[in-house]
Amino acid sequence: MKIIIVTIFFILMTICIYMIATKLYNKFRLPILNPALITTIAVIIILQLFHISYDTYMFGGQWIHELLGPSVVALAYPLYKHISLIMKHFKIIISCIMIGIIVNIISVSAFLFLAGFSKEITLSAIPKSITNAVAIEVANQIGGIPSLTVVFVMMAGFTGIIIGPYLFKWFNIKSDLARGMSFGNASHGIGTAKALEYGKATGSISTTGMILSAIFSSFLIPLMFILLF
């Protein structure tokens, strides 16, 4: 009985905080007020304040977590809607995504290896440019720590939207295709929200880049893992 009450309480608590955070974000439209970020911080503060362990929280949390897989499956719908766009720019989109994935894997592994971080941390960091839901699953697959992966994923997202616009200016990246690909491949969902500010075309390209790079990464990263370790 006690477990049922705890479960329902944590589900409701998470959803309520999330709805308040969404209202807040819609009002001020500041990227730092990202609803997921605010909700996570609020939940952690509450748990720390009342000395509740993560395992206790997950009695409720797992019910929300359970829908993460289906939400990944739901990405098939926007991908299907973009099929004509993908076919039109097929070669360039695929090459951009492949280069993005390879640069991501090599740069993360090289930096973290040279700095002497543990294998576990490195494996958690490699999926950082994939959209969150898929990154969690890939981290699980290769033996990283999913919670840590999400933090790296968020760092990649915020780096993209804060530094991205300067990069476009300094390196003269002007076309919709290039900007969309940059945001989608490097900064996934958070980047795609920013890409939409550059226009619908950039947003569409970014969505495509995000979904396709997630699919290809989820093939390539475990494959690379098998070959290297």
Partner: peptide, 27 residues
């Protein structure tokens, strides 16, 4: 490292599309 790596991914993807991609995406 996360910031550096993200910048590298953005630039590499962006450069390839800017160099070889079409300049505009139709409506």
């Amino acid at each position: 490292f996360m910031i550096l790596s993200t910048v590298l991914v953005m630039l590499s993807s962006g450069f390839v599309a800017e160099k070889w991609g079409k300049k505009s995406v139709e409506q």
